[in-house]
């Protein structure tokens, strides 16, 4: 009983981390229809920015969110404006460009740091609390709380603010949205900026948990893509809940099957999902079919 509880809890907390990375990715994917391969690298940049803020300015990793989010928000806007917007109707070239960005960012950090591994040790980072018989790491609980808050705020914003409604309108039908007077390019820049900012925030929240390396983005990005497909294109609740499904699967498979096969287990779920319900749990029907259609 204690073991199962411990496995489930670790799956829940791992799922929180996956949701955290997937929410920004799914926002970009769902609205702009860009497969942003560099999203994991945005998370990595967020981690390094947090590390620099901690070491140079002595800012706590959690406070650094206030710095890292705007930083990556601006970076995201620049990427969208000067790279992706120019490739708007060329999905293959967008894949190409974001993959180039991935290589560029990953190896830029590698070249600058020389590949040294960094980590942050704050009083909080090694703290654990007891839940029944199980010890739970505090930074992971904070990440879980943060992703829950982000999901709620984002979902509320998309439903109730004018800007959020514009984002949803653009996601549903770009041309109709333009005819209604929505500035599509501006909405894309905002969406990409927020998506990148969320990746930066994820990076700040992950910094106390993981050792930094230039390749760390790769650890999350595949899980995040699986979450996106599982949860549904462009759906915030989908990304949130999909993260937990993937995290739980990984934890259960890792404990009961074999640790080295855990990714294969979530892939099996992913494939079954693609066959049974390709739109994902919360996706709009047909979204997977029109993903690449030129809308203009």
């Amino acid at each position: 009983m204690g073991t199962l509880l411990s496995v489930l809890l670790s799956g829940l907390l791992l799922g929180g981390l996956y949701s955290l990375v997937a929410i920004g990715l799914n926002l970009i994917f769902g609205v702009i229809r860009v497969v942003n391969f560099a999203q994991g690298e945005f998370v990595m940049l967020g981690m390094y920015a947090t590390f620099v803020a901690y070491n140079l300015l002595h800012i706590d990793p959690y406070l650094a969110i206030l710095l890292v989010f705007p930083l990556l928000f601006v970076f995201g806007i620049l990427v969208q404006r000067f790279i992706l917007q120019r490739l708007q109707n060329e999905p293959m070239m967008q894949v190409f460009a974001t993959f180039g960005l991935l290589m560029l960012l990953q190896n830029l950090v590698l070249a600058v740091t020389g590949g040294a591994a960094y980590s942050i040790r704050t009083p909080l980072s090694s703290m654990a609390i007891a839940v029944g018989p199980v010890q739970v790491s505090v930074p992971r609980v904070i990440a879980l709380a943060a992703v829950t808050a982000v999901a709620l705020i984002l979902q509320w914003g998309l439903r109730n603010t004018m800007t959020g409604k514009a984002v949803r309108a653009v996601a549903q039908d770009r041309r109709a949205a333009r005819l209604m007077g929505i500035d599509v390019e501006r909405t894309y820049m905002l969406t990409f900026g927020v998506g990148a900012g969320l990746a930066g925030m994820a990076g700040a929240l992950l910094t106390p948990i993981f050792t930094l390396s230039p390749q760390i983005g790769g650890n999350f990005i595949l899980a995040a893509f699986a979450v996106v497909v599982l949860g549904g294109l462009g759906s915030v609740p989908g990304a949130y809940i999909g993260g937990f499904l993937i995290g739980m699967t990984e934890a259960l498979a890792g404990y009961y099957l074999d640790p080295s096969l855990k990714q294969a287990a979530w892939f099996a779920i992913f494939i079954i999902m693609l066959i049974v319900r390709p739109t994902g749990l919360f996706g709009l029907a047909g979204a997977e079919e029109v993903g690449l259609r030129v809308q203009e």
Binding site: F29, R33, V34, V35, P91, V95, F225, V228, V229, F270, I271, L274, I275, P278, E288, E289, V290, G291, L292, R293
Partner: peptide
């Protein structure tokens, strides 16, 4: 069964 970016991701 998947098109475009979904095919790439799968």
């Amino acid at each position: 069964r998947l098109r475009g970016p979904f095919f790439a991701i799968a």
